[in-house]
Design a protein around this nucleic acid. Sequence first.
DNA 1: CACGCGTGGAC
DNA 2: TGTCCAAGCGT
Length: 288
Amino acid sequence: MSDLHEAILGWYDAHQRDLPWRRPEATPWGVMVSEFMLQQTPVVRVLPMWKAWMTRWPTPAALAAEPSGEAVRAWGRLGYPRRALRLHAAAAAIVEQHDGAVPDEYDDLLALPGVGDYTAAAVASFGFGRRHVVLDTNVRRVFARLLAGHEFPAPGVTKAERALAASVLPHDDSAAVWSVAVMELGALVCTAVAPRCDACPVAHLCAWRTAGRPTYAGPERKVQTWAGTDRQCRGRLLAVLRDADGPVHRSALEAVWDKPDQRDRALRGLVDDGLATQVGPDSFALPG
DNA sequence: CACGCGTGGAC
DNA sequence: TGTCCAAGCGT
């Protein structure tokens, strides 16, 4: 094993967080649920939700047996509620196509709703110990600094970047642990803002640090706007539906957003996306 | 491939 | 205090 691998795996062994989906008793379904919830969402906010979901829906079949609206409701304020819808659809697909067992093949995982390259690789790796290149925002940042000498990776995953990640992926059964270890290093030490190089186990090998930590010089990184957007409007509207026991009258939705045009557009969007249904001339609800 | 998609915490 | 960020996906 190289110095690089020994340093990162040793650091992970000593400093990893005790997260429930990483424990030996965690099921592939538990891993999959965690990966859905962790898409663009911090660990601290996922923890309580994951526990609640695993208690209520310990298997794909349990989730698939309920209306999709219940998944949306239980998603609460985790954000990006379409993930709840897709997780529900993925559970249904697992029941129908895989006898209720989360598939262990990357290609089968990738075919599930809401599962892209990252999530397929993560579930195959962390749920089944398979060997895959796992490229998330943390891994990309760590490799950009450590191996390429850049503060941040390019906006999109490049061919060269994937090849570089593949070149350091262990060939033995430590590949999955390696991936989660690099990810953890990015989450705890090699952070986007104020990285703690003094606590980094591979600082002595880091190309970015050797170069004097040059600031990012690539294309402008896009920043999401929020106030006044359709996205904010959708969030308000869906919160009303989520917090209600049954159907909601249009007036209750009108009360949470001033601009009629934008409100109507957002509501149509929610219905189009399957996050809401119109159950009467002037009433709406979560999908059944 | 650029964009839209939620939410809340940190600085 | 506004800006940036957090285990991405689908179109």
